[in-house]
Structures are given as C-alpha cells and as structure tokens.
Simulated scan of single mutants.
Amino acid sequence: MAEYEIVCTVQTGCTAGGHILAVGRVDTDYQMGVLEVYRSMDKGDRYFTYAEGLKAYVRKWACPCGAGTLKSTADATLRNNLDSLPLCG
C-alpha cells in the first residue's frame, strides 16, 4: 500500500464541474485513468492532493449521471481540490 500525490487532471463531463477522467502523479509523467486508480485503491493505495500544507485525500465518486469519477475530500482550503489542479498537458 502506497500514497501518491496527484498534481494534474484530465477533465470533461456533463456537470458544471465536469468529471475527472485521468490524473497525473508527482512521481511520473504517466497519466492514470479513473478505472486504473480505482483498481489501485482497491488494493489499498491512497491518492491525495496537496496545497497550503494540507492534504486532501481522493475517493471514488459516482456522479448522479452514472459516470464513475474521483472527488477530493473536503478540507480547509480550495487550492488542493481536484478541480483546482492544473490540467495535465
């Protein structure tokens, strides 16, 4: 089991905030798709974002439209939300 920092996202979607389709980790240039992150989480790995000295852990989330995506947990700052991260390029 390991922890990985997410530093960028690939987004699209049917809602105002969109869906996270893939994420980029701090330790690699490789972008992981949501299903790959789900499988990793099922094995016990944890994912988080980091800003202002705070970690926001990431969890699986099922959008009301039926899409499986990712969501960051609520905390004291918006700067570490998945939606606030830069887009992967």
Score class of each variant (00 low, 15 high):
40 S>M: 10
88 C>N: 13
61 W>G: 01
4 Y>G: 04
78 L>W: 07
57 Y>N: 06
8 C>L: 04
20 I>C: 10
82 L>A: 11
73 T>V: 13
46 R>Y: 07
60 K>V: 02
63 C>F: 12
18 G>R: 09
31 Q>D: 08
48 F>H: 12
18 G>H: 11
59 R>A: 14
31 Q>E: 15
13 G>N: 11
62 A>V: 15
48 F>N: 05
63 C>G: 10
54 L>C: 03
70 L>S: 04
51 A>E: 10
81 N>E: 14
49 T>K: 10
77 T>S: 12
77 T>G: 00
35 L>D: 15
16 A>S: 13
60 K>S: 08
15 T>W: 01
21 L>N: 14
32 M>H: 12
5 E>G: 00
67 A>G: 01
52 E>H: 00
61 W>N: 14
23 V>N: 07
60 K>L: 04
36 E>M: 04
48 F>R: 01
71 K>M: 12
26 V>L: 08
54 L>F: 09
44 G>E: 03
53 G>M: 03
8 C>H: 06
79 R>H: 04
37 V>C: 03
72 S>P: 06
17 G>N: 10
73 T>H: 08
28 T>Q: 12
89 G>S: 13
84 S>E: 12
50 Y>A: 00
75 D>N: 14
47 Y>Q: 06
12 T>P: 00
74 A>T: 08
59 R>T: 08
57 Y>R: 09
80 N>W: 02
71 K>P: 00
87 L>A: 10
46 R>Q: 15
75 D>Y: 09
82 L>M: 06
9 T>M: 08
34 V>F: 07
68 G>Q: 15
40 S>C: 07
22 A>F: 05
43 K>Y: 04
75 D>H: 10
87 L>H: 06
62 A>F: 12
9 T>I: 15
8 C>Q: 05
54 L>V: 15
86 P>A: 01
71 K>E: 14
23 V>Y: 07
33 G>N: 12
27 D>W: 04
59 R>E: 14
89 G>M: 05
83 D>F: 10
11 Q>C: 05
18 G>A: 11
80 N>C: 10
51 A>R: 10
69 T>H: 12
5 E>R: 14
83 D>G: 04
76 A>R: 15
88 C>D: 12
66 G>T: 11
25 R>G: 00
69 T>Q: 13
8 C>S: 09
82 L>W: 08
36 E>T: 14
9 T>R: 08
52 E>P: 00
41 M>V: 03
12 T>F: 06
60 K>F: 01
82 L>V: 02
11 Q>G: 06
46 R>E: 15
45 D>W: 00
5 E>N: 01
43 K>T: 09
14 C>H: 09
32 M>N: 05
16 A>L: 13
69 T>N: 11
45 D>Y: 02
48 F>W: 02
77 T>K: 02
6 I>F: 01
